[in-house]
Computed example of a mutant assay.
Amino acid sequence: MGRLRPAVLAGILVLVPVLAGCTAEGGPSSTGTSASVPATGGTMPDAPSTSAPLETTQSSNKAPVYWIGRTGGNVFLYREFRDVPEQENPVTRALRAMMSEKPLDPDFFTPWQNPDKLATSISGKDVITVDVSSDAFNSNLDADMAARAIQQLIYTATAAAASSGLIDTGQQIRVRILVDGHTDYVAFGKVQLGALMTRAAGLVAPVWIIDPQENAEVAAGSVKITGRSTSPGAKLHWQILQSADGGSKAPFLSGETTAATGQGQAGAFTLALNLPPGDYELRVAQAGSGGEPDRNEDTRSFKVR
C-alpha cells in the first residue's frame, strides 16, 4: 500500500496535535489540554478524532510497540506486539524495542536511535516518567515528524504500562520525558519536552490489522483475523490475495464487514476465513460512500501452513 519509507522522513508536513486528552475508551478528555505544532503543509482531512483505547491487561510477555506508517496521504501510528527480553520493566522493554529494533512490517518505520541510557518509572498510577539519553534523538526531522515521534513514544509507553497492569486505565495517563535527567530538552530540535503529555487524538491508524502480524504463520483451516477501525459502525471492505509462482498475486476471497459499536469493542472487527496452505496478503480499507473509492487501506502478508 506504499506507506512512508524512512528516506522521506523530513518531507512530511502535516498538522499534528502534540498534547490532547485520552480516556480508557479512547475519546478526548474534557480536562486535557492541547497544542499544535505549526505546519506549513496540509491538514489531516480524514483523520479520526479519537485516540486508540488504552490496551487491556494481558498475560503475554510480548510488548506493544507503536511504529509510524503512511496511508491515504496521511501519517499514522500502527502497533505490533514484539518478543522482548525480560531483564527490564515492561515500559522500558517496549521503548527499547521501539528505539533499537525494526518493525516486522516493512511499511512501518521508527525515527528513534538506540539510546545509551533508558529508564522509566511510574508514580501515582497515572504518570509515567521516561528518562532517555540525548543520542536517541539523532535523526533529522521536521517539526511535524518530530511531534509524531514523540507521540510514538507516548503511545508505546502507555500501552506497555496498561497491558502489564501497571497503571489505572480509568484515569488519563500522562507521560513526562526527561533527557539525561533534565526537563528542558528540545527533542529533534523541534519539540520542547518536560511537561506532562498525553496521547494525541487523531494519530492512530484509521484501519488497523491486529492479527495475524506481518509474515506470521498460521494453521490451515479457519484463520481468525482481527483488526480495528477508528469509526465504530463503519463498513470495511476486505480482500485476500494469494501468491502464485513468480511472485504474482491473484484475488482469492473478498467481502465486507462492519466495525463493532459495543462498549469495550467499539471499532473492532473479526473475520474467520477458511484458507488452504499458501502465502497470502490481506487488505482492509474503509468503504467509500456515494461512489467514492475505498480509503485508509492497511495490508498484511502472512502464511498458512
Rank of each mutant, 00 (worst) to 15 (best):
N89E: 08
Y66N: 04
G288L: 07
D131E: 07
S29V: 02
N74Y: 03
F302I: 05
I177L: 14
T261Y: 13
E297T: 09
L77A: 00
T56F: 13
A39W: 06
G262D: 05
A195D: 10
I209H: 00
S133T: 07
M99T: 13
A216Y: 03
R228F: 05
N215C: 14
Y155G: 02
W238M: 05
G267R: 00
C22F: 00
R228E: 04
T92R: 05
G170S: 00
G288H: 08
P293I: 02
I128N: 01
Y66H: 08
F108D: 01
V130Y: 10
L153Q: 06
P6F: 15
G181T: 11
P6L: 14
T57A: 07
A220V: 08
T226I: 12
T57Y: 03
S36T: 10
D142R: 06
T56S: 12
T92N: 05
S289R: 05
A244R: 06
A268Q: 06
L141N: 08
P48D: 01
P85S: 03
D131L: 09
A195S: 10
A149H: 08
A234E: 13
G170Y: 00
T257E: 03
T50P: 01
R79T: 00
D279S: 11
T71K: 11
T230I: 07
K224E: 15
L118R: 04
A160M: 04
P6G: 15
N274W: 03
D46S: 06
S301Q: 05
A259S: 05
E101V: 02
R82C: 05
G246I: 12
N274C: 10
Y78Q: 04
V18Y: 15
V284F: 02
L141Y: 08
H182M: 14
D107T: 09
D298A: 13
G189E: 13
